[in-house]
Amino acid sequence: MSDHALALPALPAVAPRRRVDHDDRAALSLVGPIAVLMLLLLLAPTAAMIALSLTDAELGASTITFVGLDAYRDVLGDRTFLISAKNTALYVAIVTPASVGLGLGFALLIEAGTELRGFFRSAYFLPVVSLITAMATVWQYLMHPAIGPINLLLHVVGLPSINWLGSSDNVLGSLALIGIWQQTGFDMVLFLAGLGAIDRTLYDAAEIDGARSAVDRFRLVTWPMLGPTLLFVVTITMINAVKVFETVMTLTQGGPAKASEVLLWTIYQEGFVFLHLGTASAMAVIFVAVLLVLIVFQTRVMDRRVHYG
């Protein structure tokens, strides 16, 4: 694609028309299949979702009426949806900085070390490739208040045991802990790739210019050069965190008393358990819109600050 774009200005100004047509056709045939797929698999369902959100559709109901923006008004005034949005925001606010920070830390340590690099790399990456629903069951056991190893450990060192998933005060934190565990390895691998791409000579130059300590080298070379990677990692981590569902579904079902109610779970419940398709679609539209705005904002603002040259 980029070759194509670069090649165009180089063409002589008197290039025959036919050649451009040919190029257009080539471009079309290259873009065509994916465009059709996107239309069928992404845009059409999204359009259907928007259309449904303007109706009072219910699974199994024989009639369907157009209700305009009523569903949106209901959703924005719905206590459950607001709690859910708040919980999701809190979850993202915990998981994103923690897993990005830890991922960067581990990547730096592995990059700096000389032995067992392959081992550590795979060890931290394991949670990413494991099936989260199955691993959630393992966490359920680890965090069990009466028979779980974590509480037994706390007991041994004389600390009071914690009701990880059963208490409405702790449950979101516990789920965030699992989320961090799952995301850190992924972030680490991305940072490793970013670190590998930094030109070694920059470090040598920095050293000659007086950056002797590791902290200085990190501050002056690594951190600025990691900018584009960091932007990508933060974005992907946030998106993954907003999409939290499996752990909630397997471990807490939104409870106790909505303390772990998150957006995807709320949408699932509304649509497939309460059978209110219209309302669920409105929730999904709001969800996607917020996500889009976040991503566009972040990319626009951050993009300006992380590109050099």
């Binding site: 069990h144 208040p145 009466a146 059963g166 106790p256």
Partner: peptide, 17 residues
Amino acid sequence: PALTADAQLQAFYAGKV
């Protein structure tokens, strides 16, 4: 105690309830 449904059942199976 306030437990999740699963935790309750697992604790019973383990002979703790």
